[in-house]
């Protein structure tokens, strides 16, 4: 396996949100604006990379039966570090992400990668995998949050892009809009996948 393929698989082929349907709670909850989406994405990238690194370091000494609690404690440690850093340097982001910062611990992507990848592969590959998957997750957050912010608020990354005569579709930045956007984006990616398969 090549490093580049390991790195890029998270972008489309094994994208955690669109292809594997993992980590859906933060995908829905923090995507009301691009800024929140990117903030959450960066937090997940750092936790995922660090936890993949440590878990692949200890993978040979961890007994199989209690591996899940050990993985969770490792992940929770890094989440606590990220939480404290964010509280200190980005207090506003911390406030708007709120509950979902400690909840990175139970993001299925992180435990999923620990179980499926980092506990079976060497350190270098695990770091690459963590980075790639994290970036894939961030990409999907950015896609969903741009749709929601554009139509629901008429802005992109906080800058107004639509004329003031545009009436924002407010429902898109609220809870039902999150489900609706994700549903249609998933549908689009399914359709894309089918087109590719038919062509081959």
């Amino acid at each position: 396996m090549s490093i580049i393929r390991e790195f890029t698989k998270g972008f489309y082929k094994e994208n955690p949100v669109f292809r594997l349907a993992l980590g859906l709670c933060p995908t829905l909850a923090v995507t009301s604006s691009i800024e929140n989406g990117i903030g959450m994405g960066v937090a997940v990238i750092s936790v995922l990379t660090c936890s993949n690194f440590v878990i692949s370091l200890v993978r040979k000494v961890v007994p199989k039966k209690i591996r899940i609690p050990i993985f969770i404690v490792i992940i929770a440690t890094f989440v606590t570090i990220v939480e404290m850093l964010m509280q200190a340097y980005k207090p506003e982001l911390y406030k708007s992400l709120g509950l979902f910062v400690p909840l990175i611990v139970v993001n299925c992507i992180i435990l999923g990668r620990a179980e499926a990848y980092a506990s079976r592969n060497n350190v270098i590959y695990s770091i690459i995998d963590g980075l790639g998957m994290g970036i894939g997750f961030t990409l999907s957050l950015v896609i969903i949050s741009s749709i929601r912010e554009f139509f629901g608020n008429g802005t992109l990354y906080g800058y107004p892009v639509l004329p003031t005569s545009y009436k924002p579709v407010l429902i898109l930045v609220m809870a039902p809009g999150a489900f609706l956007t994700l549903g249609y984006v998933l549908c689009f990616f399914n359709w894309l996948d089918m087109r590719f398969k038919n062509r081959n």
Binding site: A21, I171, M174, A175, P176, G177, A178, F179, L180, L182, G183, Y184, L186, C187, F188, N190, W191, M194
Partner: peptide
């Protein structure tokens, strides 16, 4: 429709349900 089967339609259902709970 084929691309909507499975998870996507479940999310659209969830959206309508969430609208009701709204």
């Amino acid at each position: 429709p084929k691309p909507l089967r499975g998870i996507p339609i479940a999310f659209i259902l969830a959206s309508l349900m969430s609208l009701a709970f709204f």
